[in-house]
Write a protein that binds this DNA or RNA. Structure first.
Length: 935
RNA sequence: GUGGGCGUGGCGGAAUGGCAGACGCGCUGGACUUAGGAUCCAGUGAGGAAACUCGUGGGGGUUCAAGUCCCCCCGCCCACACCA
């Protein structure tokens, strides 16, 4: 059958594979996509126009790729190839985020060293992606696990470590400048003058100011895995993402990075970025800046600070609530209450985060037995502890204003605490609750949080009564607080400092050693600190219910490595190395810059190269990567951390750009249907058929679900399947045709054939399927075809610039379909069509370009430009509407004016018939578009 | 709960406020065939013989004109989730 009927040069999967592999080899051999730098080892002549385009780099996981993974990579490749053809020097490559938990877990499962599995996985991904024909500069592909890479990760860490944040300048400065200002007494030191401090005292004071510091903080402790986890590695129900072990909040000594110092700038500079609004919003919410006041309440055990966004309601603060973890709870608890408090604290500590933070829970809490003084009323108010107050936000203590805060209200009702109104709600509010208006809150059913006239809010020196505006009352209260030393207006952030250490193996070692006083940074010339070999790199699991035992850090087993003799300026001494490794995010915080200068062994990046590829293009511009494409899942983590590191490097003068990623684009996801049988087992999705709206597998009904693609869901389709059955060009085209790049869409193998047919038709329009000879003729195209060609060029260019590849493909199909009615394809259409095809289906385009007689790759050959003269129509067909419904059509010379169009419309036979003598009230002529007659 | 996004043929999706459904899949018919799960050609929103009518989740509004703008409701997706 059949196979031998297929003409030898029909564009089949086999021919596609032949073409694709040949061109991929040639591109590789010629270094076709190598982009020159202005300076350094990769220097060459550079164009003024440049485009630095990036994908979020992948984890080299062991399971390989499915067809969902390359969506963004294809998108950026199409765009990059298009821009190359419009004169841009394009930097595009892809590296690997190869440190971290996934690689380590995979290595542990397979029993091999993480480096071996990582390198295997990288090689496999390179093969799968290489077959796609991505136009990457492979000289620039780096892995975060390369020693030559993480050497600079450690170097940047040291830059941050050796800096402090100067609030008066709002930026980071070298720590040496802080030391100088202490030494010159320009800046005061606490307790005693700098000169009188011992070396160790000086050191500890300086350490307090560094952007990297050690602190005892609550972390996500997962005994089952023997490590601390990042927030994003903990599932919504308080279990570890991998292994499903319980996770506990627990205090532990941790390396921290002072990202909160940059809260204001990270927030403000969002306005200067070309990012999707939803992502900016997520970052704003994550940073969570709120303006309010710090208020000090005095107690017998000392002052207690609270943060409030509503200082104006201070007169209504009838009790205080502390987080169970608050450090003052012990000293505030009276003997009679000690047992209840201890019990409550224990219950809160063992509750996992999910239970603890589940919203709309009934309020719980206990009284400490102590009171504090409300600074404006002078009254004693009880101090409670309750788990709805979180240690991780504000000061871990609140003033409770039940009349003005929903949570405080339900707590007060729960425990019968007094409620005092400070604002009179409007009548409508009382009406909606069907209660009589009153500032006595006995009947109130909820707190009132809006604007309202202040009542019950005065003392001898402050009166808010009669004020109607919240902001005015806030200002008055803040001024009073500051004047009387009870607090001040302040800004609070939800953002916490970044916990920067992991007790694992597969990460960057800290370039830090310890002596008996604390940590000491290694000098730059001792980098890199290589990850030592150990017998067993798996973290040691601890009984999942054991919250006490400290983590057994894998690097501690490298006994030959942990103790090291060094001369750090005080003569040779034995130091202990820091045993932590950096979190997954470290390498991705700066990898875009290593793409620019991948082999530079003098600096992490040459300033000239950074300026060229990332520098600001105009005054006030933040600079950065021109286009960064990736999924939304990194909205707040990677994208916030990398902004933070970049800003530190900017402050220290290492880069000219203020932001790493100028423009961000979120690609959608490819999703897939999966099917389960009556036992709930997944069945092969490819074998399921649809009949009469029901889904059947071997004639048995199955249930359909929609979501991820994966091996375990038996709905995984791999790029290799696509290469085998259709070829890479068809696969690329299919992925780009199914929708706009930022939209998620379902995978449908059945639909792929459409793009293969398109390529087959296009191939057949230029190549004889029997002989493989080029059939393009030199006779010029007819006018109609030329017009369609230029309309297509115009539209496709616009679509390419706007990343609308789906509509660009539709336009190319239209043009190609019109060619099939011609006896032969004219060269003056064939060549531009091949150019327009080349970003999308580069292999076929190269092959056709060669058949058209060219020997050079068309990678840098100019993209066609539409002739404006051919874009204007000589005549225009106007639909003529009567009251919005089309009743006739007229064909009018393009240069006819509105009056003429109106005249012709009114004279049209169908129109006069439909009008039936009725007098038009108004005639609207939209030039070039339509006519609407209103009767 | 709060914030954000999205609802268009059987399916994926097109449409600067201006002729809804480009393009592809599927489907129907035809061609070539001993054969078609290959390829090519034509048709394909619904109703209707046709003229025509109805159609973008539902309801209202603005406009000469609404898928598009405004208000209310319903549904789905995502993020955050007692943030003081």
């Amino acid at each position: 059958m059949a196979a031998d009927d297929v003409p030898p040069f029909r564009y089949t999967a086999a021919l596609a594979a032949d073409i694709e592999l040949r061109w991929q080899q040639r591109w590789e051999a010629d270094g076709t996509f190598n982009a020159p730098n202005p300076a350094g080892a990769l220097a060459g002549p550079v164009a003024d126009n440049k485009l630095f385009i990036m994908d979020m780099f992948p984890y080299p996981s062991g399971t390989g790729l499915h067809v969902g993974h390359p969506l963004g990579y294809i998108g950026t490749d199409v765009y990059a190839r298009y821009k190359r053809k419009t004169g841009f020097n394009v930097l595009h490559t892809l590296g690997y985020d190869s440190f971290g938990l996934p690689a380590e877990q995979y290595a542990i499962r397979t029993g091999q060293h993480p480096r071996v599995t990582t390198e295997d996985n990288v090689a496999n991904m390179r093969r799968q992606l290489g077959r796609l024909g991505l136009a990457h500069d492979n000289r620039r592909s780096v892995s975060t696990t390369d020693e030559a890479f993480y050497r600079w990760t450690q170097w940047i860490f040291l830059q941050i470590y050796n800096s402090w944040f100067d609030p008066s300048h709002g930026r980071a400065r070298p720590i040496t400048e802080l030391i100088a200002s202490f030494a010159s007494a320009e800046r005061a030191t606490p307790h005693k003058p700098w000169a009188e401090m011992s070396k160790v005292e000086q050191r500890l004071l300086i350490d307090e100011h560094r952007l990297v510091y050690v602190a005892e903080i609550p972390v996500n402790w997962c005994p089952g895995m023997g490590t601390v986890l990042a927030n994003e590695e903990v599932t919504a129900d308080g279990k570890s993402d991998i292994g499903n072990f319980p996770v506990f909040k627990r205090n532990m000594k941790q390396w921290m990075m002072r990202i909160t110092s940059y809260g204001d700038r990270l927030l403000a500079d969002l306005d200067r970025l070309d990012w999707p609004e939803p992502i900016k919003l997520m970052q704003r919410n994550w940073i969570g800046r709120s303006a309010g006041a710090r208020v000090t309440f005095d107690s017998h055990a000392g002052p207690i600070d609270v943060f409030t966004t509503r200082p104006d309601t201070l007169f209504g603060a009838t009790f205080m609530v502390l987080s169970p973890e608050h450090p003052m709870v012990d000293v505030l608890t009276a003997a009679a209450n000690a047992e209840a408090v201890a019990e409550y604290r224990k219950a809160a500590a063992t509750k996992d985060q999910f239970d603890r933070t589940a919203a709309d829970r009934e309020k719980t809490g206990v009284f400490t037995g102590s009171t504090a003084t409300n600074p404006v009323t002078g009254k004693q108010i009880p101090i409670w502890i309750a788990d709805y107050v979180l240690m991780g936000y504000g000061t871990g203590a609140i003033m409770a204003v039940p009349s003005g805060d929903e949570r405080d209200f339900s707590f007060a009702r729960q425990f019968g605490l007094p409620i005092v109104a400070t604002q009179m709600p409007p009548h409508a509010w009382f009406q909606s609750h069907q209660i009589a208006p009153s500032a006595i809150c006995d009947d109130w059913k909820e707190a009132y949080v809006g604007e309202g006239t202040y009542v019950n809010s005065s003392n001898e020196t402050l009166s808010l009564n009669g004020i109607t505006s919240v902001s005015e009352a806030k200002e008055a209260t803040n001024a009073w607080l500051e004047h009387h030393g009870h607090g001040e207006g302040t800004i609070n952030y939800r953002l916490r400092d970044w916990g920067f250490a992991r007790q694992r193996y597969w990460g960057e070692p800290f370039p830090i050693v310890w002596d008996e006083h604390g940590p000491i940074a290694l000098p730059d010339d001792m980098l890199p600190v290589l990850l030592p070999e150990v017998e067993d790199y798996a973290p040691e699991p601890i009984d999942p219910n054991d919250e006490i035992t400290d983590p057994q850090i894998p690097l501690a087993r490298a006994t030959h490595w942990t103790a090291v003799e060094l001369d750090l300026g005080d003569g040779p001494k034995t130091y202990t190395r820091d045993l932590n490794v950096m979190p997954q995010w470290a390498g991705s915080c700066w990898y875009e810059m290593r793409y620019i200068d991948p082999v530079n062994d003098q600096r992490f990046i040459d300033p000239a190269n950074e300026r060229y590829w990332m520098g600001p293009r105009a005054a006030g511009d933040v600079g950065g990567v021109d286009l960064y494409v990736g999924g939304v899942e990194h909205a707040v983590l990677h994208l916030l951390y990398s902004r933070f590191w970049h800003k530190v490097l900017y402050d220290l003068g290492h880069v000219s750009s203020e932001e790493p990623f100028h423009r961000l684009f979120n690609q959608g996801y490819i999703q897939a249907y999966a099917y389960t049988d009556d036992r709930g087992q997944y069945v092969e999705a490819e074998e399921v058929v649809e009949r009469d709206g029901k889904f059947l597998h071997n004639d048995r009904p199955v249930k359909r679900e929609y979501g991820k693609m994966g091996k375990s869901l038996k709905n995984m389709v791999t790029p290799d399947d696509m290469y085998d059955n259709y070829g890479a060009d068809t696969f690329r085209l299919y992925e780009m045709s199914t929708g706009p790049l930022d939209a998620s869409r379902p995978w449908s193998t059945r639909d792929v054939i459409g793009m293969q047919r398109f390529l087959q038709r296009l191939w057949r329009a230029m190549v004889d399927e029997e002989t493989g000879a080029c059939t393009v003729v030199d006779t010029p195209a007819d006018d109609a075809t030329r017009k369609l060609l230029h309309k297509t060029i115009h539209g496709v260019s616009e679509d390419m610039d706007a990343l609308r590849f789906n509509t660009a493909i539709a336009k190319l199909i239209e043009l190609n379909n019109s060619l099939t009615s011609l006896s032969a394809t004219p060269r003056d259409v064939a060549e531009p069509l091949v150019h327009m095809l080349s970003p999308l289906a580069p292999h076929m385009a190269e092959e056709l370009w060669a058949k058209l007689g060219y020997t050079e790759s068309l990678t840098y050959a100019a993209f066609p430009v539409a002739d404006p003269a051919l874009l204007v129509e000589n005549t225009i067909e106007y639909p003529v509407q009567i009251n919005g419904k089309v009743r006739g059509r007229i064909t009018v010379n393009a240069d006819a004016d509105g009056k003429a169009v109106e005249g012709l419309a009114m004279a049209d036979a169908k129109v006069t018939e439909a009008l039936a003598g009725a007098m038009p009230k108004k005639v609207i002529v939209v030039p070039g578009r339509m006519v609407n007659i209103v009767v």
